[in-house]
Every structure is written in structure tokens, then in C-alpha cells.
Design a protein around this nucleic acid. Structure first.
Lengths: 138, 138
DNA sequence: ATTGAAACCAGCAGGTA
DNA sequence: TACCTGCTGGTTTCAAT
């Protein structure tokens, strides 16, 4: 379903999602329209879910990033899942295995902001916060 | 440094990073070249770190995503940080506070693949794995 | 920030294998 | 089906304002 040409296209778009079809085609030796058709197909089938940007949060006034593991109270999970989208501080949320069952990545301005968020989460479960010190993905 | 116009631009690019300068300009009522200059400036200053795509890993044959928390052995941290970029399964790595000091997000084909990765990580520290069941970010 | 002009690209039609 | 070429209108890019 996905061949090595699609993979090459995905690799280029992962490096720079704003490349034109023509530019991608030049890199992988394919005509612009062929590149376009393959990319449109991958959008249709959902292989490409989203084109996004990575932003430097500190420069936008958000100096605190953290993971919050939540052990949701019995019977509160559905309610909590409904509330999550309405909390803008939550950048990403996953259900996970283990003692805690929800994993949140949150973007915050400062410690006070973190405290306010934890207060908001407390009705739904016990929280365990891991502050992010730095990105070491290279 | 970042005004409300830049913020509006960032919001549009977060929704769709492939929007043309002209399209962004139409949405926020600005000329294409003004949009272009602002975006180029945000790239220069690092506010925009990257244009990327989000991909559906299961469709690419990667059916297992997980967080691995690593309590790195004393004296092994620098070595481990150097090794991380050479492990393709690691999508994202952070230094964090808490009992464990490294937080990894990993993309894997299956359980065997996870086992092989954990074997590779074992020399550097004790690992604690949380499997991702689903994305609930909405 | 805008305009204007040249180069470039997106999108589409029609064609090949 | 997957790819290509060629055309047209819109876009990018850059210089001048």
C-alpha cells in the first residue's frame, strides 16, 4: 500500500512540510503531478494526518513544559476524556497502560499556571507531574 | 517581539502548515509579502522551529507506540545522550525531573521490536515502559 | 506594508505505457 | 493505474516605494 517512493516523499515532507510538489519531485526524481497525486492519496487514506509547525514555546511566553500522569478515579474516565479537549494547556493526551491511565503533555507559562492546571485536574484523578528540563532528541 | 498578527499567523500554520502566504494573508487580511516577511522572520528567530507532518504509524507498519522512562545509571548520562540520536525508534527524548531522568517516545513495529529496543537501552539505565493505547487529544 | 513584474507552481486536461 | 507533458491562473520572490 505504501511503497518506497511514498516513503521517500514522506521523508522529505518530515524534513520540510512546505516543500512544493515540484521540489519534492526534483529530490526524488518524479514529475510534479505524480508527486501531487501520491501526496493527495496519502492525505485521503490518512497516512498523512496533518501538516503542522513546531513552535518555540519559551519565545511565546510559555516557559514550562511538563508531562502529567493521571490515575483517573473510578467512573470518571469518560467525563475526563470529554473535558480534555477544552483545556488549551494540554498539547497531547494519550491513554496508556500502567498504574496511571492518562498521559498528558502540557504547555504552561510558569509554576502558578501549573498549579492552576493541577487544581483543575484534581477532581478527575491523582496526578503525577514530570517537568521537562530539555529536549534531547538532537 | 511577537504581536497578535504573528500569533494569528502561527495559529493558521498550526492548523495547516502548507497554506500559501497568500491564503494566510486572506484569512488575516494582510498582503502576501507581509505574511511572507513575518513568517521568514519567525523562522530566523527560531519561533517557528520546523514544518512537519503527522503520520499514521499503524498504516506504515508500526503498530506499537510507547513511552519509556529511563532511570539512567550514574555516570552514563552523557554516553546515553550521545546514543539517543542513533536510535531511529526514538521519536522524541526529553530530560525530566523525578525518579527517572529521561522520557522517550518510541515508535515500534510489534512487541518483539519493543523487546529489542529495551535490550538496547538496558546498558544505560533501568527502564519503565508505558504502552500507548490511543490518542485522546481529540 | 504595499505594489508591480518576472519566475515559479498548482491544478487540470489529455496522452503514453 | 501510475506516470508524463503542456497550459492557465494563481503564487512566490524581490525590488522599489
Amino acid at each position: 500500500m505504501i511503497d518506497h517512493i511514498d516513503n521517500a516523499i514522506l521523508k522529505e515532507l518530515q524534513k520540510d512540510a512546505r516543500l512544493s510538489f515540484a521540489e519534492v519531485g526534483r529530490k526524488i526524481k518524479l514529475s510534479p503531478s505524480a508527486v501531487r497525486e501520491r501526496i493527495l492519496k496519502m492525505e485521503d487514506t490518512g497516512v498523512i494526518k496533518k501538516y503542522g509547525i513546531e513552535v518555540d514555546y519559551p519565545q511565546l511566553g510559555y516557559d514550562l513544559e511538563a508531562f502529567i500522569l493521571v490515575k483517573v478515579f473510578h467512573g470518571k474516565l469518560k467525563l475526563f476524556l470529554n473535558v480534555i479537549p477544552s483545556i488549551p494547556e494540554i498539547e497531547k493526551a494519550y491513554r496508556i497502560t500502567g498504574n496511571q491511565n492518562i498521559h498528558l503533555k502540557v504547555i504552561l507559562k510558569n509554576q502558578l499556571h501549573l498549579q492552576q492546571l493541577i487544581d483543575k485536574l484534581m477532581p478527575f484523578g491523582d496526578t503525577h507531574t514530570l517537568l521537562i528540563l530539555s529536549d534531547v532528541s538532537s
